[in-house]
Design a protein around this nucleic acid. Structure first.
Length: 457
DNA sequence: TTAGGGTTAG
């Protein structure tokens, strides 16, 4: 009894220290505890493993598992779930699968949490088909799905571009008596908004209103962002005011949405006013908030201030991300500092950021803007991934350089891949071919555009 | 120990 009480006390201490990010102190308490006869149990080690995953890394957490075994304590399903969640946090899909396999080999039966985490990891890694396979495995293993399972499925489907299937799943669950939670509505509203299905999003929002759930800050932010994206600025700002009135502007999410919208609208003065308001509220800025500010400074051409912020981020120990550097590359391109942009791309590589499609697109656009279209072509040829932004920028650049035949060739290869390009891009190439006396080529391009429209409808 | 909102390019 005394021993069990002591272990409980030890666990309470370790849990509090882990929650306060005091991992080193938690380790000291563990060592001192053992010395004083407070014996750790599976909960002690599970707490430490979860904390290592969250604060240090999954490999370091795995060393705790070894120590746990050395202490004669067997891991359980919670131990493995924590490790799988840790691996999923760092998108280490093969490690997630290895851990799942190791769990099975140790005769530990995976539970709904294990499957949910693995499924989510597959979705986050861009593998919706595999995620669905995990869902099926779960059913075959007689593990009952939880509301989180369905929420993960709906969210994953939306993010993978299958919002229609997500809505279908939602409806079929409802028919089988599933009562959607607020989070389910939020996932679906956000997913439908992002895929441009505004009518359906509005319908779900109406159903949410009738469901008895009260829309929260997340619901409001999703809908507000959707309004801004579709040019309904007045409605967007009305939502922001309503959020303020309800006390839903307690974090940076709503502010970042509004500031970015104003930056896009070319209203830096108003955006700066909101920045000041956000800073006055006193909540700490995270990396997305910093990125929003850097983006605004870049849009204003204030690159020095933007880099000063990057310096601040790094100085306070915060990690900059792909967005931070992509925004800076774009900012440099926009002021015509192509050398600076290329240097920053190199810096990104050195920092360990993988090849970044958006940043490369910015460079191509910047090169075309300053008339270096041949160099833009070289960058294009070396790019592994290309999207409609890549083609749009380059085709426009080629038209500007009066290289209409090459522009037409690129445009066609883009259309054949089923990518959508701007109407202005198509018009520029056809008009260019005509003005150069290439009437037959212009006619052929028009037919090809027409065919592509039918094929990829 | 699992799920939801904010930041980048034509």
């Amino acid at each position: 009894m005394v021993c069990r009480l002591s272990t409980r006390l030890l666990n309470i201490c370790i849990t509090s220290l882990c929650k306060a990010w005091q991992l080193e102190k938690a380790e000291v308490v563990l060592i001192d505890g053992i010395r004083l006869g407070y014996l750790p149990d599976v909960v002690t080690y599970n707490t430490l493993i979860a904390a290592y995953c969250r604060l240090v890394g999954v490999h370091e957490a795995y060393t705790v598992l070894r120590r746990m075994r050395e202490a004669g304590i067997n891991p359980d399903v919670i131990t493995y779930n924590a490790l799988i969640a840790g691996a999923a946090r760092y998108r280490l899909l093969p490690l997630c699968l290895d851990l799942f396999e190791e769990m099975l080999q140790n005769d530990i039966i995976p539970d709904v949490w294990s499957y949910n985490t693995l499924m989510n990891c597959f979705f986050k890694s861009g593998q919706p088909v595999e995620a669905n396979r995990i869902f099926r495995d779960m059913i075959l293993s007689n593990v009952s799905p939880s509301p989180t399972t369905y929420n993960t499925m709906i969210d994953g489907l939306c993010k993978a571009g299958y919002s229609v299937n997500a809505l279908r799943l939602f409806r079929s669950l409802q028919r089988h008596g599933f009562l959607p939670q607020l989070v389910t509505y939020n996932i679906l509203i956000n997913g439908l908004c992002k895929s441009g299905k505004l009518g359906e999003a509005r319908m779900i929002l109406k159903e949410l209103g009738e469901s008895g759930h009260v829309p929260n800050a997340i619901t409001y932010t999703s809908v507000m962002r959707c309004c801004f994206r579709h040019g309904k600025f007045e409605q967007g700002f009305e939502i922001f005011l309503e959020m303020k009135g309800k006390g839903y502007t307690f974090d940076s999410f709503a502010y970042c949405t509004v500031i970015s919208a104003l930056a896009k609208m070319g209203k830096p003065k108003e955006a700066n006013d909101y920045i000041e308001e956000m800073l006055r509220t006193g909540f700490g800025l995270d990396i997305v908030s910093y990125n929003t500010l850097i983006n605004l400074y870049c849009k204003e051409g204030k690159l020095e201030t933007a880099f000063q912020l990057l310096y601040e981020i790094e100085k306070c120990g915060m990690q900059s991300d792909e967005y931070t550097h992509t925004i800076l590359v774009d900012g440099l391109c926009k002021i015509g500092d192509i050398d600076g942009a290329q240097r920053h791309l190199e810096y990104m590589k050195r920092m360990g950021f993988e090849s970044n499609l958006v940043a490369c697109n910015c460079l191509i656009h910047g090169l075309c803007k300053v008339g270096k279209v041949d160099y833009a072509m070289k960058v294009f040829e070396n790019m592994e991934l290309k999207d409609s932004f890549t083609y749009d920028s380059l085709v426009h650049g080629l038209c500007k350089a009066r290289k209409f035949l090459l522009a037409s060739k690129l445009l066609l290869s883009c259309l054949r891949k089923g990518m959508k390009v701007l109407s202005s891009t198509k018009r520029a190439v056809i008009a260019g071919l005509r003005s150069s006396g290439l009437r037959r080529e212009a006619k052929e391009l028009r037919s090809a555009i027409w065919m592509a429209r039918i094929l990829h409808w």
